[in-house]
Design a protein around this nucleic acid. Structure first.
Lengths: 151, 151
DNA sequence: CTCTGATTATCAGTAGAGCTGATTATCAGC
DNA sequence: GCTGATAATCAGCTCTACTGATAATCAGAG
């Protein structure tokens, strides 16, 4: 018995767009659009950056990249086509298991990632600018806890 | 003591998926999927609920509904087709301006909205369950401020 | 009144994302 | 050498959101 957020007054329902859940959905979409926006001039999209990041340091099969990024296998084919065409990645047959492709990052790919990461960090900085440093830490903590526990 | 965010150490770049912005995008998508999930059994989607909410109390032209909800005009046509077919809304020509449709909510539409709002409130409750009441208030405050200032 | 330009709702067509299923090549076990 | 499973790929489907065109209507100038 703790009618905290809901129909507290009976005769008056809260508007959807004042609810935390709705705000989260909208804010997430907004942030996503911003990030896509800063990546667009680099000819990249979020998924490319995620895949490149996963490739850094070690080589992976496409299957492993799908596992790590949550992308569909057919989407991964397209993403790697893009990256390969730009010279950011290379596919080669695995000698151990010739069904697999070993996907490796090139120097250009590494540089592109650094540039993208910098652009994303700047965009994030701008996005979170209305909050103080302490509030950003709070937000990050809350969001991360929600994501790891309910997600 | 929380050295978990930015490139504070120089030699080590933070992973994208530990960044607040990325987490926000993912969490928003997750929440959206949850909400779509609870609306699906009712034969509705988020946009339908938003449009219905906007129609409550007053009648609107489709153009005004687009303005209020941010939906595209052609999408609005489809949404109203759905609502009309289910008996939740009615279109009629405006007598003042015969180009316009006056869209009104039916009793069934009102009942459907209440049911949907209840389902959404429950889903939100479950989604935010990992947080204490105070933390939810914090989160709501932070998210709302971000949305109103940077959005 | 008539002509012009804007506005409302609608529809048709387009482009992209994300998926399923089929295909080819390869592997591992028997 | 079979058999079944797996990796990458391709073709095709669906769904969404948009652009552009269209018919009806309005508002204003002359």
């Amino acid at each position: 018995m703790c009618p905290r957020e809901g129909p507290r007054f009976g005769f008056m329902e809260p508007r959807l767009d004042t609810q935390t859940g709705y705000l989260l959905v909208k804010l997430g979409a907004l942030a996503g659009a911003r990030f896509d926006g800063v990546l667009a001039p680099l000819g990249l999209r979020g998924r490319h950056v995620r895949v490149i990041e996963e490739m850094r340091g070690a080589s992976h099969s496409q299957q492993e990249l799908c596992q790590a990024t949550g992308l569909d296998r057919t989407t991964m084919v397209a993403v790697l086509d893009d990256l390969e065409q730009r010279g950011y990645a290379r596919r080669s047959r695995s000698t151990a298991d010739r069904r697999k492709h070993v996907v490796t990052l090139t120097g250009a790919g590494e540089r592109a990632f650094k540039e993208a990461a910098r652009a994303l960090a700047d965009a994030q900085e701008a996005f979170l600018a209305p909050l103080s440093a302490g509030e950003r830490d709070q937000l990050r903590d809350l969001v991360e806890r929600l994501r790891t526990t309910t997600g």
